[in-house]
Design a binder for these strands. Sequence first.
DNA 1: CGGGGAATTGAGTCGGGTCAAGTATAGTGG
DNA 2: CCACTATACTTGACCCGACTCAATTCCCCG
Lengths: 249, 249
Amino acid sequence: MSNPPPAGRPDRESIKVACSNCSLRELCMPMGLSDDEMARIDDVISARRKVKRKTALFRSGEKFHALYAIRTGVFKTCVVAEDGRDQVTGFQMAGEIVGLDGIVNDQHTCDAVALEDSEVCVMPFDRIGELSREVGALQHHLHRVMSREIVREHGVMLLLGTMRAEERLAAFLLNLVQRLQARGFSRSELVLRMTRQEIGSYLGLKLETVSRTFSRFAEEGMIEVHQRHVRIVDTQRLKAILAQPGGSF
Amino acid sequence: MSNPPPAGRPDRESIKVACSNCSLRELCMPMGLSDDEMARIDDVISARRKVKRKTALFRSGEKFHALYAIRTGVFKTCVVAEDGRDQVTGFQMAGEIVGLDGIVNDQHTCDAVALEDSEVCVMPFDRIGELSREVGALQHHLHRVMSREIVREHGVMLLLGTMRAEERLAAFLLNLVQRLQARGFSRSELVLRMTRQEIGSYLGLKLETVSRTFSRFAEEGMIEVHQRHVRIVDTQRLKAILAQPGGSF
DNA sequence: CGGGGAATTGAGTCGGGTCAAGTATAGTGG
DNA sequence: CCACTATACTTGACCCGACTCAATTCCCCG
């Protein structure tokens, strides 16, 4: 664990990360930085951290000291009430940032759990704060990331507050596939990294309802489902579900 | 409207606002600032703006250029889907900040509508950005405000995703009265500034359900309801509703 | 190859939605 | 000041979509 890496073969855990040549740069970093600015940002990213499937990157109650940029893998974030009920608040993938919830009270208020073996960049928050005071683009970028999260959650509230089961699942699938496509994956084929239970928690449904709704979509020829493998056959019809409810107002 | 204010009696619309002696300072500003820092923040708050009941402070689609700190009154924020469905995403009162959603795309993504005649401080966002680069406390404060909003929305997602109607309304009332108490109002008496419809939208319920649930609480002697006047008679029992659902997992 | 979590499917129930009627309250204009 | 209207609220009856409980089936992994 704390042994020095064998000579000639650097320990992957401890080598310096370089945003400057990271393929996810355009996903999690501001655009149009000078070489100097980029180098200083590289300097802030202190380390990578691997997180094995089903283990937590952080848990509610832990002290907050860093934001995390996901390099590979998928996470879920979830909050739990005192009585034990829990709610998945989001699924995050490569290039997305987790940990923003911890800033208010210097303490995480949700769990971030890897759904598959994953790797993140650790970005100590005080360092980010310092640097963003000097690099305006970084400051603005951070504000945008937080604002984007607020807007995303508005969308989830709309979903949870007004949509029926079919609409929720359609919205979920379309959102997932859209984000995957932006990362170079297929726009019709996807592998769910989360269980029906977790999808249900996110969408405010029971796992049986999620399963049944998948089956109904499949029956109607809109998708093909084999366990966690989903193929979207008719994107248009899936989108049309979102516009249905009662024919506007 | 654009007439110069009569001499000797400054136009309340145009006079310089001073955070430094605002009674809401501890609600919407960072603590422990030097006089100099405070003066510079005063300088950023460009103006106040009055917003009449039922009119919008900003609307979805409008260009974003400022955050707004509420001085007096109450607002609701709501998002609307393409098909016209809308969802109230929050109710904001004195000392709270609205407009954070606009940062990502330089454009507001929700409406902020006054529920009673209100007044806000206009805080141009580029000025905030500049100043927060120099005043560390302001920078951190802004981050905390945004993070707090993210955490609040997590709570709403938990409510919408897992709670039954009674729990939702109990949580809503307890939250409202707690925030009012923090502002020096009674901890048992409150006047709702929003309709049953709006409460329902926020809680993911129909207005009839909200009304029925109020009536049930009243029947059971936990609250007294006369239209928008609510008296909380038994806070403990109201809190107990939140811990019920099935007796933990 | 066997064990166990995950997923599917069915039958029955119920909480909250829908539709509708009736009442209270706040504005508005005469 | 009062009548009139619009809007908000309450309440009842009925219905339906999602939940509950339960029984299999399907894989994935050791």
